[in-house]
Simulated assay, not measured.
Amino acid sequence: MTLVDKEIILEPDRPIIDPHHHLWDWRGRVPHTPASRYSYDNVLHCTPRYLAEELLADVNSGHDIRATVHLECGSMYRRLGPTEMAPIGETEFVNGVAAMGASGVYGDRQLCAGIVGYADLSVGDRAAALLEAHITASASRFRGIRQSAAYDVDPEVIQQSPPRRSGLYCDARFRAGFRRLAPLNLTFDAWLLEPQLPDLIDLARAFPETKICLDHAGTPLGVASYGGRRGERFPIWRASIETLAKCPNVYVKLGGLGMPYSAFPSFMAQPRASSVQLAEEWRPYIEVCIEAFSPARAMFESNFPVDVLSCSYATLWNAFKRLAEPYTDTEKYELFFSTAAHFYRIQIDS
């Protein structure tokens, strides 16, 4: 599969903070046999390595990316020591990349200016020590936790190892750890699937003092038992998004729609989809999210390198700029820059 889809850059001077990307090196873990079309393993086949060099190539591909935020992905965990502390290794690793960016050797891009790590909040009160260890390891760049709850009763929808259980965000043990976030001024990134959105609504209402960001527009589904049913489920997804947006502590990331789970026609298309096609496919979901949350609580995200199966980094941001055309300059500034800067406490000139 070729990954070449070069487009002329739209609005190249518009400042951007990319609030959601990953870094990894899975070259020793890539499956030997090709994955099914809608399997996440296809990402690993295309991009088994995505480190500072690859990230720099993307952020320097034409758009004015001023800073980025790294989201946990199980990368570079500590091999030795207590299992609970293993994820601190990812923060240590990402902080090293952030230091490379801060040196100025690679230009003005502030790579990984914010770091969102992983801790199993289900350990309850013991989570405090894990959070403090992340903060110590990050040289003041640590911003919060993401603990994914993505699950469906149909095992073909999402395959995880080890398997996740249903109802994580409603679990009393998880919430005992979750309540440790706000006192440390830490945020929470939530990734779950569209049918699970009521769980996040309940969590947000129970902890109004904790800032939460819904990742990937709530991940609408179009695979396995949801195949061909995206239109049928759109009103259900929209109602959940509108209810969630009534919680003033919740924000939303506009992206992640290039992943396998939504199964848009652009996914793994040949020839590669243009930014025009991407914008048209994603528009109904993006517009609902912006209308519900307002630009002050919505931010475009790359979700790279995961979304590489649908387009290049440059084409992705072109699609977002097409989607933002109806909005005012002030609203565009929020969607591309200031909402992310506010949520993740990133101080950088625009």
Results as ranks from 00 to 15, higher is better:
189 D>Q: 06
206 A>M: 11
209 E>F: 01
220 P>S: 08
150 A>R: 11
195 P>A: 04
220 P>C: 07
137 A>C: 08
233 R>Y: 14
138 S>V: 06
117 G>R: 04
165 R>L: 12
176 A>E: 10
125 D>F: 03
135 I>D: 07
137 A>Q: 08
209 E>S: 13
143 R>K: 13
179 R>A: 10
192 L>M: 14
169 Y>S: 05
166 S>G: 06
117 G>A: 02
140 S>D: 15
185 N>Q: 15
178 F>V: 01
133 A>R: 14
199 D>R: 07
185 N>C: 07
225 S>Q: 14
180 R>N: 13
233 R>G: 01
238 R>E: 14
172 A>W: 00
187 T>G: 13
224 A>D: 09
225 S>E: 12
234 F>N: 00
133 A>K: 12
183 P>Q: 07
215 D>W: 06
238 R>G: 02
155 P>S: 14
130 L>Y: 02
125 D>H: 10
132 E>I: 02
212 I>V: 13
121 L>E: 03
155 P>K: 12
135 I>A: 11
158 I>V: 14
166 S>T: 10
119 A>F: 00
117 G>H: 05
210 T>S: 06
116 V>N: 05
203 L>Y: 11
199 D>L: 09
195 P>S: 04
226 Y>I: 07
212 I>H: 01
214 L>Y: 05
123 V>L: 03
142 F>Q: 06
243 T>R: 13
200 L>N: 10
192 L>I: 12
229 R>E: 02
201 I>S: 15
158 I>N: 05
173 R>M: 10
219 T>E: 00
228 G>Y: 05
158 I>Y: 09
127 A>E: 03
199 D>E: 15
156 E>G: 12
160 Q>C: 11
117 G>K: 03
179 R>I: 02
122 S>Q: 05
143 R>D: 07
169 Y>A: 00
180 R>G: 04
167 G>N: 02
247 C>K: 12
128 A>H: 13
161 S>T: 15
221 L>P: 06
237 W>Y: 09
121 L>P: 00
219 T>H: 07
144 G>R: 04
156 E>N: 15
115 I>Q: 10
159 Q>F: 15
126 R>Q: 13
144 G>E: 09
173 R>Q: 12
176 A>L: 00
218 G>Y: 03
179 R>N: 09
146 R>Q: 11
204 A>E: 08
136 T>Q: 15
196 Q>P: 06
240 S>G: 07
213 C>V: 15
218 G>N: 04
130 L>A: 09
229 R>T: 11
138 S>M: 08
153 V>H: 14
153 V>N: 12
232 E>C: 09
214 L>R: 01
125 D>R: 10
132 E>F: 03
190 A>D: 08
168 L>K: 04
127 A>I: 03
119 A>M: 11
230 R>F: 08
232 E>Y: 12
140 S>E: 14
238 R>C: 12
227 G>W: 11
186 L>R: 05
216 H>K: 00
215 D>M: 11
198 P>F: 11
160 Q>G: 00
152 D>I: 02
215 D>Y: 11
212 I>Y: 02
130 L>Q: 09
201 I>N: 14
147 Q>T: 04
142 F>D: 06
226 Y>S: 04
164 R>C: 02
